[in-house]
Design a protein around this nucleic acid. Structure first.
Lengths: 222, 222
DNA sequence: AAATCCTGACTGGGCGATCAGTCAGGATTC
DNA sequence: GAATCCTGACTGATCGCCCAGTCAGGATTT
């Protein structure tokens, strides 16, 4: 019964390959248990494959993690870049609010519309974006610094009063605020007696966007 | 050479006890390797004690971690509460900027003036404050939610236009921005070509405070 | 001498990684 | 067209290592 099928053609796969199943499982287990806490055995079980197969395809735990990051960050950052490019493609310059929205929407939508992981990748992103570990920072540098520069330049373009240093800080702070949304700790609900829900991405965005824009404009005025 | 001395008095220790040495070492190792990645052996070695002694004093790894959190969060949050109380003790209401500064200064000063750990606890705080793990959230709830409520109420007092929900979000976002400072990833330096330094807490605070205040005021105006 | 502090050897278990071997099916040979 | 060869996907048992935690007993304090 456990057919070897899935990848029907001979060329580049179509349909859900076993490799994709492993990456999906890795996303869930890494999100739930952290990098160190995630066991290759647990990932194999979640993917419904033998543990050996993960090593066959990805060689090591570290490379599996990187492959997982590459897949999702590629999807998300291509979408982000496209949104920003669109905003500047037309005659009139975009509003700051639109830039900030372009920064976050792809992340939450990629986390949500796949649905099978419930924002698992976002949680992984939170923990390793904040890591000082050189291994994690290398991944950030390769896969996230380029899109960061795109946004930093976008900020400078529409807010000419912003120095490059200010724009870098503004970007970092914006990401920090976004972490609040992606971490999904449940703390806002606790602190507010149930009113605030960090599971409702849309409601959060409607607060995050004005908050960040207000912060950026305050830096401009300094 | 390796005297067993250290604790000179008889009662509750004065001077650096072995327990404190273990907690200091735990702070450094947990910060460097994460909770799962930190080995009791490594902590024992860093503290210069036998591994068995850690279990003698703290019983389990989890309880050691909690003891470490309790010690520092106690120091930091008492200072934070005192600062906020001071701000409201006098006739005229404080400025929003002063509240935000009271929120962060104790954390960076407790992280820095002990100097022996170079902000190790701040980094631990970042990783477990963002954790969705119930074990971590329980610690946050017990040791950080009360002071959070204090700040949320302070925000509402000086910005009457802020609803409770807005104040909770504002607090969460502020903490998110503060994470940027505490994580010390080195990313700002990379993104800015060396101009921005997340190791310079004073320089960061001078940007963080206006950014957050601008964000809060933007929420008020909505 | 009682109590507390402390050590270092030890244990069982879980870890990442390895590897010999199975299997399906495409290519090659006759 | 059938026997052979070959390859890439996959399994499950296994390895050596390191982990948190234990414990018997030595050292030190009171």
């Amino acid at each position: 019964m456990s057919s070897h099928a899935a990848r029907t053609g001979s060329g580049p796969g179509q349909g859900e390959s076993r490799q994709d199943a492993i990456l999906d499982a890795a996303e869930r287990v890494f999100a739930a248990d952290g990098y160190q806490g995630a066991a290759m055995r647990a990932i194999a079980e979640a993917a419904g494959v033998a543990q050996g197969l993960i090593h066959y395809h990805f060689k090591t735990k570290e490379k599996l993690f990187e492959a997982m990051v590459v897949r999702r960050s590629g999807q998300i950052n291509e979408r982000r870049a496209a949104l920003v490019a669109d905003l500047f493609a037309h005659g009139d310059p975009p509003r700051l609010e639109q830039i900030v929205e372009a920064l976050f929407r792809p992340t939450i939508e990629t986390g949500l519309d796949l649905a099978r992981d419930g924002g698992a990748f976002a949680r992984i992103l939170v923990s390793f974006a904040n890591s000082a570990d050189p291994r994690d920072q290398r991944l950030i540098e390769i896969h996230y610094d380029p899109i960061a520069q795109t946004f930093i330049e976008a900020l400078m373009r529409i807010e000419p009063g912003l120095s490059r240093a200010d724009a870098v800080w503004a970007y970092m702070f914006a990401i920090g605020v976004g972490m609040t949304m992606m971490a999904k700790t449940g703390r806002p609900k606790r602190l507010s007696g149930g009113v605030c829900d960090d599971g409702d991405a849309e409601a959060m965005l409607s607060r995050i966007v004005p908050f960040i824009c207000g912060g950026v404009r305050a830096l401009v005025e300094e």
